[in-house]
Computed example of a mutant assay.
Amino acid sequence: MANRLEYIDLLKVFSILAIITIHAFMVWQSAEILNGVLIYSFCEVVRFGVPVFLMVSGALLLNREINIVDFFKKKVNRIVVPFVFYYILTAFVIVVLLNTSHNQVENIFAFRWYFWMILGVYLSLPVINKYVQNSSLNELRYFILLFVLAAIFYQITYYFKIEQYLYLTLFLSPLGYLILGYYLSKKTFNMSANKIVMLALVIFIVSTVIKVFGHQFNYMMITDDYVANTSPILSSWLDVSIFQIMQASSFFLMCKYIYETDAIPFKSIKKVLQTNVISKFVLSVSRSSYGMYLINLIPTFMFYYYIQPLDFTGTQVCLLIIALSLSTFFITWIIVVILGRIPFIKNLSGYY
Rank of each mutant, 00 (worst) to 15 (best):
I20K: 00
L348C: 12
S207R: 02
L137K: 08
S173Q: 00
Q164W: 09
R112Y: 14
F71C: 02
S288K: 00
I295R: 00
L34M: 11
V317P: 02
T90C: 03
I79T: 13
E106Q: 11
I321E: 02
D224H: 12
V50R: 04
K12G: 09
M302A: 13
Y352C: 11
L324P: 02
I33Q: 09
G314W: 02
F111H: 05
S135I: 09
L5Y: 08
Y293E: 00
I20V: 04
I128K: 06
F83W: 08
F330R: 09
I264F: 13
L149G: 06
D224R: 03
I196V: 14
Y167Q: 15
P51C: 11
S30F: 07
Y114V: 10
V209L: 06
H23L: 04
N194C: 07
L146G: 03
W237G: 15
V93L: 04
Y159T: 12
L125D: 01
D262N: 09
V121Q: 01
W113I: 15
I245W: 00
E260Y: 06
I39G: 00
I278L: 13
R341T: 11
S41G: 08
F42H: 09
V148C: 05
L320S: 10
F217T: 13
T100E: 04
F25A: 03
N229A: 06
F25R: 01
L10R: 04
L172M: 11
K130Y: 01
Q29G: 01
T90P: 06
V93S: 05
F147D: 03
I338L: 14
L149T: 07
S235G: 06
A200N: 06
L123S: 13
L283G: 10
G291R: 08
V337R: 10
Q308R: 14
G36L: 12
E139N: 09
P265I: 04
S325E: 02
N77T: 08
I264S: 14
P343M: 03
L178K: 06
Q244N: 15
N276M: 12
N77G: 15
H23F: 05
I156F: 06
V93M: 10
Y154P: 08
L180T: 06
F312V: 03
L320M: 15
S135H: 11
C43M: 13
E260F: 10
N129A: 12
T169W: 07
A263S: 07
N138V: 14
V148M: 12
Y167H: 15
I8Y: 11
L310S: 14
L184R: 07
N67S: 15
H102I: 10
